[in-house]
Design a protein around this nucleic acid. Sequence first.
DNA 1: TGCCAGGCCCTCTTTAGGGCCTT
Length: 236
Amino acid sequence: MSETPRAKTFVFMDLEATGLPNVDPEIAEISLFAVHRSSLENFVRDDKGMPVLPRVLDKLTLCMSPQRPFSAKASEITGLSSEGLARCQKASFDGAVVRTLQAFLSRQEGPLCLVAHNGFDYDFPLLCTELQRLGAHLPPDTICLDTLPALRGLDRAHSHGTRAQGRKGYSLGSLFHRYFQLEPSAAHSAEGDVYTLLMVFLHRAGELLAWADEQPHHWAHIGPMYTPPEPLSLHD
DNA sequence: TGCCAGGCCCTCTTTAGGGCCTT
């Protein structure tokens, strides 16, 4: 019997931020789709084979103004900019964001499993950094699933003994195209990418649920991407 | 001037190199 209870709600997430880890990025947009395990176990497909989005789905998407500038590339691909966010009077990733996030998560049956693509190397450490800066925490029994190594691992196990034909792409867009022969819509909006992630997950739902159950990664073991700079002193 | 992620995976590998993946 596993010591870790199976997650009851899967929270699919994506972050848009000011850049890649080499610039110590800050979050500019976060999107979460919370889906109960029962919906993932019992989803249906339409007549074209596309998974039908679960009818019962909680969504949260928030934009916020980072305190440091966007890299040119990040601004280009996300369509977000410091000026645009400031014009809309968006506050930074602050206590209000944390309380909203915690309230959203508290509505879901736990334990929770956060799901992100390349989450171990990007989304989870970056979210951890922002939460740590504010002294905030997620529920202690939260686990997390990174669909990038999970899908690579599943495919490797599937093709064991046979030579895989060529090197497959495992970007979120590549997976969506491979599974559905379609281009993902609204790439690099946080909500668009979470939708793409959820569709990719549903296509392999049985295997990915088993993966999450059999090798849970605890949120408590996620470390920050970097140490945030000290808050500005009142004395300059 | 030079600094400017990092863990994983594949292969023309293992005494290594290079590309992927996230913005």
